[in-house]
Structures are given as C-alpha cells and as structure tokens.
C-alpha cells in the first residue's frame, strides 16, 4: 500500500503538515503564552500530533502486513521474490496469486490463528527485527538461504484457517482422507516434502539438504486455479 493509495496516510501527512506549520510559526513569532497562542499550540502540540499517531499507527500496522515490508530485510528477498514471481509454482507464490491473499500473503499465512493471534504475530515480528539487526544483517543471501529457518514447525492451524479440512472437495482427496487425524493434530505438516512441498523453494528444515523446489505442476489458468475456494 503506497501513501498515494491510502487515505489514512494522507490524513496523517496532512495532520503532520498542520502541526509543523503551527509549531514553526510559533517558533518564529514567539508570541507570549496567552489564551489564543495556547489554543493554537494545543492543536499544534496535541490534536494534530495525536491525529498523526492515530492514522500513522493504523497505516504502520497495515504496512507491516505487506510482502514488500517482509522483503525489505535482504535475507527475505529470495522468499519475497519467489512470491512475486508469476511463474513460480511454490506454495507461497500460488497463494500470492490468490486475490484473497495478494500482497499480504506473508502475513496471511504466518499470522497465528486465535484471539490473540495478531498480537502474538506482532511480538514475533519484533523478535525477527531484533534477530535481523543483531545476527543476520551482514549474512549473505546465499548463506541465509540455508541458515535461516522457522523457530518452530509451521502449524497446520494456519493452513486450516482457510482449508478447514471439513470441505467435501478436500475430503475427496485420498491422501487427505487417509491422514485426516494426523493433519488436524499437526503430526503431519501440510507444507512438507511428502505432501504439498515446502512453502518456499529455498526453505528446508534444519539438517535437511536443499532439494529441488516445487512439487506442484504449474497452473494453466491462474484465474481459476489460484483465486478459487479453499475447501
């Protein structure tokens, strides 16, 4: 989401401009602290900055959901580039082409499910930022491809936010039917080599050698295949 396309960002920028204008005007003119200057300053130091913070916070939280934000750390570039690719057949890219995920596919898939999922996810994101600046900032991308891994196994619950495992189409797949209990209990990962493959071509669990990406054939009609329902 760019500044131009977001009304909140425009509101925040307008509030910032008004606040700055009032403050600069006060600093230049330096009027005595009378009733009128107090009112002006209340707007310049209180009302408008609160407007900037309010609109800016919402805009900031929305920005953190975008793939461009995730890819702004260089070690995430391979993952983000793969998601961006219209020719990739990886799970992440296929989901990125789904209009329900779109540009927020990183967040949609990695956000924890549940009542406090958003908060837990944001706290996890803070941890990522900390680790990036303390450990991974100078790691070359090629090295990062093999050294960066998830803290804990990817939970099937995140897949099941959309793929409920209750749908008729989903249950008609023999492998789904056979592993239903294991999938629901998280004993078998949906995004594993034996099932749908790893979500990112470069990703492998620790200790597993890199292998060829993509286990799915390329979709022939993306509008039907990728924007379809999630049984």
């Amino acid at each position: 989401m760019t500044v131009q396309s977001s009304p909140l960002a425009v509101v925040a920028l307008a509030c910032a401009a008004l606040s700055a204008a009032i403050i600069v005007g006060y600093l230049i003119l330096r009027p005595p602290l009378g009733p009128s200057s107090r009112i002006w300053l209340l707007f310049g130091l209180g009302v408008f900055p609160i407007g900037v913070a309010f609109a800016g916070n919402i805009q900031g939280f929305e920005a953190t959901k975008e793939r461009q934000f995730c890819g702004s750390c260089h070690v995430m570039i391979p993952h983000a580039s793969d998601s961006n690719s219209i020719t990739s057949v990886s799970l992440s890219s296929r989901h990125a082409r789904n209009k329900l995920f779109g540009n927020e596919n990183c967040y949609s898939c990695h956000a924890d499910y549940g009542m406090f999922g958003t908060i837990v996810t944001k706290l996890g994101g803070m941890r990522h930022v900390w680790l990036y600046y303390t450990e991974y900032r100078n790691v070359p991308i090629e090295e990062a491809k093999t050294t960066i891994h998830l803290l804990k196994p990817y939970p099937n619950d995140n897949c099941m936010q959309c793929h409920s495992t209750e749908g008729k189409l989903w249950l008609e797949v023999p492998d789904h039917k056979a592993s239903l209990g294991d999938v629901r209990q998280g004993r078998v990962s949906c995004a594993s080599a034996g099932c749908h493959g790893y979500a990112h071509p470069n990703f492998r669990p620790p200790g597993e050698a890199p292998a060829e990406p993509a286990v799915h054939p390329a979709p022939t009609d993306s509008s039907k295949t990728d924007a379809g329902s999630a049984p």
């Binding site: 602290l33 900037v52 900031g60 953190t64 975008e66 930022v129």
Partner: peptide, 29 residues
C-alpha cells in the same frame, strides 16, 4: 518548557512521517 515541547513534537512528527514515507522495519518501529 513550551520551546522544548515544540522541538520534541517536531522530532516525533518527523519520525512518524518517515515511517509513512518509508515503511521499513526500522522507521515503523
């Protein structure tokens, strides 16, 4: 005190505007 308040507000608003124009982890945080 009002002078200090003005300077602090300008710095705060500057940081917030930076995060809007350049939404990367460091500016947003």
């Amino acid at each position: 005190l009002v002078l200090v308040s003005c300077v602090l507000t300008l710095a705060a608003v500057g940081l917030m505007v930076w995060s809007l124009l350049d939404p990367r982890p460091v500016p947003v945080v």
